[in-house]
């Protein structure tokens, strides 16, 4: 287990380094820099700005300062509220630096404000996806070939085929305008979360339903299910105790990609429902040339996806005693 985690960590470090250096190089290769083209500045002011963001340093030094863990920037803290004596700094210490666009805010401030919102949205979406997907998949598998199965499979194919913003617009018309049950946009209460969460989770519910159905059918055709019936167990017990665990194993391994997908989908959903989450900040930063924010979110989400994938792999071993992580 420990060896597995260490190996994961090593690959993770490599991945992160690649992501950081590629995006850092791209960001600094842009002609004119992030502050060009907005307002023509007096040379001295421009120099001031460059100095404030350390853009006057050689690029390797900027990179080292950005990555960390040593703080090379004795000035940094002075305009961000620190006292300038920090020894540690940079991404490795969880410090993404100042935002280029939101003056007087660090990327950490912005992420700190918006991430809980996005995380909550993601959790709601995942809950929708799992509850709908697993129950539809089981129902479909148990009624294989029946009308319910056909209807659920059609719905799942539709859910996979239609992008979430199309589904969102239909649902907004339905539940906000025609049958005014839910608020149209904003954030704060449970009602605000239901619809965005649902729209975000639906695609994954469809995939999960498919996976559950296939998994359950596979398991239900196994010999040990017949053994369980031969023991005299009731069908409900057989399905819940013997079949379900094996049937949802594919779903568990899908949770990693699903998390990445939900993070992606949140970009669109947050924009449609005007939710002030990390996703909308990211899209804004991309169009605003707020490179530090864009990079910070990219790195953060890489860490999140990687970490959650590892958690999913660990969870898998708990469910399936046959998996041995050491010899992966």
């Amino acid at each position: 287990m420990l060896r597995f985690l260490l190996r994961r960590l090593l690959w993770f470090a490599i991945t992160l380094l690649v992501v950081m250096s590629v995006s850092f190089t791209l960001m600094h290769s842009v002609k004119g820099g992030p502050f060009d083209n907005e307002r023509t500045l007096h040379p001295s002011i421009e120099a001031n700005i460059k100095a404030r963001y350390n853009l006057d340093w050689p690029i390797w030094r900027q990179f080292l300062d950005y990555v960390g863990p040593l703080n090379l920037n004795e000035k940094r803290a002075t305009f961000l509220g620190g006292d300038g004596s920090d020894v540690w700094g940079g991404v490795m210490t969880g410090d993404f630096g100042p935002s280029y666009r939101y003056r007087d805010f660090t990327v950490n401030d912005i992420i700190g404000q918006s991430l809980p919102i996005s995380a909550l949205l993601g959790v709601v979406a995942m809950m929708w996806a799992l509850s709908l997907g697993v129950s539809a998949g089981i129902a479909s598998a148990l009624r294989r070939g029946g009308k319910l199965d056909l209807a659920l499979r059609l719905a799942a194919t539709g859910g996979i085929a239609l992008p979430n913003f199309v589904i969102a617009s239909f649902l907004i018309i339905l539940f906000v305008f025609w049958i005014p049950l839910l608020p149209v946009a904003g954030w704060g209460t449970l009602q605000h979360m239901l619809l965005p969460g649902f729209c975000l989770g639906l695609v994954f519910a469809a995939y999960i339903a498919r996976l559950t159905r296939t998994g359950m059918l596979e398991v239900l055709s196994q010999d040990y299910i017949r053994t369980a019936y031969a023991k005299g167990l009731a069908p409900r017990t057989v399905i819940l105790r013997h079949a379900l665990k094996g049937g949802i194993l594919p779903v568990v391994s899908y949770l990693g990609p699903a998390t990445a997908g939900i993070l992606t989908g949140s970009l669109v959903i947050e924009r449609i429902f005007f939710i002030p989450g990390t996703g909308s900040h990211f899209v804004n930063s991309a169009t605003n040339r707020d490179y530090t924010l864009a990079m910070g979110v990219t790195i953060l989400y890489t860490v999140l996806v990687y970490g959650l994938n590892t958690v999913v792999d660990l969870a898998y071993t708990l469910l399936d005693p046959r998996i041995d992580l050491e010899n992966e």
Binding site: D223, R226, A230, G232, K245, G246, D320
Partner: peptide, 18 residues
């Protein structure tokens, strides 16, 4: 399983691996 029990052919697949 109570009055009449059954043993199956393949012990590899007849026990629940999980």
């Amino acid at each position: 399983g109570n009055l009449i029990s059954m043993i199956f052919q393949d012990p590899m697949t007849s026990l629940n691996p999980l």
